[in-house]
Design a protein around this nucleic acid. Structure first.
Lengths: 211, 211, 211, 211
DNA sequence: GATGAATGAGCATTCATTCAT
DNA sequence: AATGAATGAATGCTCATTCAT
């Protein structure tokens, strides 16, 4: 009998890692639609083992999301003390996008696709949101970010950009940096100089341009 | 299945319309996850009939997307002759968002969620994209829209905003207009006055604001 | 589209019968523990077909029980007008035992093993019980059946005898008639002559008798 | 596994007892349907340990049944020397019922639900049966119990009453004493006065009585 | 000898697709 | 041409049994 917090046995830990890794990849590639059997197969593990570690598909999904969200929250929290509030906000947005790119499951989480909202994930998403809200408020008080947008819009646009980055087929010619700069400049106060707009740098998206 | 081009029998045409209407509603409500039986039931039609008109779930899905894209393309094309190029672009963006909001299937299409892309849909998406590119180029030549973004980024952001609007549970306090205004202002040339930024209007998003 | 009460198509009816027959046999042999796949296999039918006809294991189970209970109810109702009330009761008891013998599923139903009680089966069981109660009351008023037992005890004993008959391995030397005669004589009023007790007939159960 | 007869180590013996106790409770509550993991958990023991002591679910089940049967056999054997043979039989019947009530697993055993019968349990059941047969014979020779029933019928009826007592949902209004009195009176010789029939005591079963 | 993790066949159920009527 | 029944592979999950630690 186990007194509840003993560390996992070696093989269990190994399997747990394998499952998580397989799930990470699978969810990243397909979103929450992958079958558990598929994940088990990728992890070289029986479905029962998977079940032992994560009693529900939802549980596994949440575990994956949680690690990701936890790291995003850390970053946001760290940015709270940065000297330039606007830069702090923008940097965190950039980091989030970079992290989430190509991770279908995070998108599913941020956009709430089919999530049972009582979950830990909901709580962590809220926590992330709140950290972001703090950054936003600070930047607004500092005068560098326009005051007429709230955290809801920022998160929506952020989720949107992330999702857009994953469009399959990848939108040809799409440059995440440039997309983000639009978001950043749109958020800036008219007073403050647009830091990211650099007309010279323009490198037109290939294909489909108008004739 | 009909290889030649004989016009459809009257009842066949009626059924096709019913199926499309039912599918439109069903996909709009649930995304591509709805079962074909469900759609057939809503259309008051047997699944066999559905199959006769659309040999694959994908085929039906595409048909729906196509009509929607066709209408968006029309709008974009119409805007091409408008007096103010920037306004033409922005208006079309607004229209797209308005149209797509609450239509889960369009989001699935624009974001490419699980789509086999050899299809007509890909072609029409490209066409839509090209119309938008024309609007963008015109606005950039007119000087009202920054020159360092390409159509790829605009489409990405657009898709993103649309998706964000459908987040379930709906992001609390999210105001589509305000989110779009960020996108618009981010796209504007620094020279041109920001038309949508109205500091006084600010109505903060409820909940989760930083303390 | 079907206006709901059209008769079943020929093949559907045939399959439905095959499924019911297979289920009857399977449930009779194993009780509610048989797997649906097993039943489908016996019926030479895909699991999906089974599902189409009975959306739940419970639904199939209930269908089987219902036909059986319906017939028992008929019998009990018919006996209501018999000349000798005690004989009416006893005869119906006999018939029930004869019908239920070797039908594990009826036992499951009568003993309520794992039944969701809101069901039609519960209602029909109650109806059967009520018919039996009528027979009992009549026999008691007539003076031939002792007045200190209620329908609850009669049904319990009845279910018990039925179950006992199914003991696997079949209890060696067990004679249903003789077991029933004990039940009958136990139910009789002391005044009325025991009709079933016939000392001469005694045929001792083989095996295990004391030495 | 231990092939010789070395006494068990202290902890092994303790674990064995814990497992048996947990299994007793679990089987009593749910019948043979409980999972072994559940039993192991209740016993504060790993499933592997359980397996070491009982190589099969069936083996554990049998062990439980055996202890119960052993005690019933004792009782029957003790009753063999009682002054009044009929009373000895009836008392033992009563005791059996009392013991078995609410012990789902004994019922499963007595009714043979899904049992592979090569087992020790079969032997002990036979032994119990033989003790009961002795009581029956003695009572018949004494003239107080009718001679046309054998031990097979008595055991069948006995198992039946036990099972009836456990009907879930419990048969409403069912009074075990009254049910047993029917069994007793049915067994009595016509000559001997019915000891248990007491017309005045009648307390009708609630519900469902005929109108 | 104890532990609890691993296994994998099995279960009820779903649904895109095919086919008899 | 329409219908709706049939199909069967697949899904998420369970659990008796086996095995590494």
């Amino acid at each position: 009998m186990q007194a509840d917090n003993r560390p996992l046995r070696a093989d269990a830990r190994r399997n747990r890692q394998r499952i998580l890794e397989a799930a990470r990849q699978a969810f990243a590639a397909e979103g929450r639609a992958v079958s558990l059997d598929e994940i088990a197969r990728r992890a070289h593990v029986g479905p029962g083992t998977l079940y032992r570690h994560f009693p529900t598909k939802e549980a596994l999904f949440e575990a994956i999301i949680q690690e990701r969200l936890r790291s995003l929250i850390e970053q946001a929290r760290a940015a709270r003390t940065a000297a330039d509030p606007a830069e702090a906000l923008f940097t965190t947005i950039d980091a989030t996008v970079a992290d989430a790119q190509a991770k279908a499951e995070l998108i599913d989480a941020l956009t709430g696709a089919g999530i049972d909202v009582q979950s830990t994930v909901a709580a962590m998403t809220a926590e992330f949101r709140q950290e972001m809200a703090r950054l936003l408020t600070r930047a607004q008080e500092h005068g560098t970010v326009r005051r007429d947008v709230g955290i809801a819009e920022v998160m929506a646009l952020l989720g949107g950009v992330i999702l857009a980055l994953r469009g399959r087929p990848a939108l040809p010619g799409m440059n995440p940096e440039r997309a983000l700069s639009v978001l950043r400049d749109g958020l800036r106060s008219p007073a403050s100089a647009p830091a990211t707009f650099e007309p010279g740098v323009h490198q037109p998206s290939p294909g489909q341009e108008a004739g």
